[in-house]
Amino acid sequence: MSTDERIDYTLKINGKPYKVENAFYSENLLHVLRYRLGLTGTKYGCEHGQCGACTVHIDGKAVCSCMELAACAVGCEITTIEGYNNQDGTLNRLQESFVKHAALQCGYCTPGFIMSAAKFIEENPNCTEDQVREGMDGNLCRCTGYNRIIEAIKEAAEVRK
């Protein structure tokens, strides 16, 4: 396909169909989510897969949406922070833990961290600090120095007896 080609397609995001019209084939999912569909909870940090601010779930996996061509995500189940959030406006356990431990300052990295950590703690209940460090290595934060993010994720991963 040429770089000038424009196409229409439908993405399934947070359980709902979203029509994308007249988009360049080359547009990545992050751009389409944010600027064509207005789903700006997913953050734009580097657009080259280095920071994790753009993390979404595609078919149950946490991925950097800036590294996915939007047109190739047709047919996938995409979940963004908007769909992951409790729909009544409250915080879930992981988000509450971030807030309680002051794991955010400017907060720009936070939605990406939440989306990555949600998958991470699903797969690593009762994780240790070392496991958090290893498993969350794809997300950058410039404000907090990470200590509180680790605390927050560890506490959220504790399985209640």
Binding site: G89, F98, V99, A102, G107, I114
Partner: peptide
């Protein structure tokens, strides 16, 4: 150690940054 007033919005991805303006 009062909680930040913007903490909930930030944790839910609802806090609006300059990059988000449309």
């Amino acid at each position: 150690s009062r909680q930040r007033p913007d903490a909930v919005a930030k944790a839910r991805g609802e806090f609006e940054y300059a990059t988000d303006l449309l």
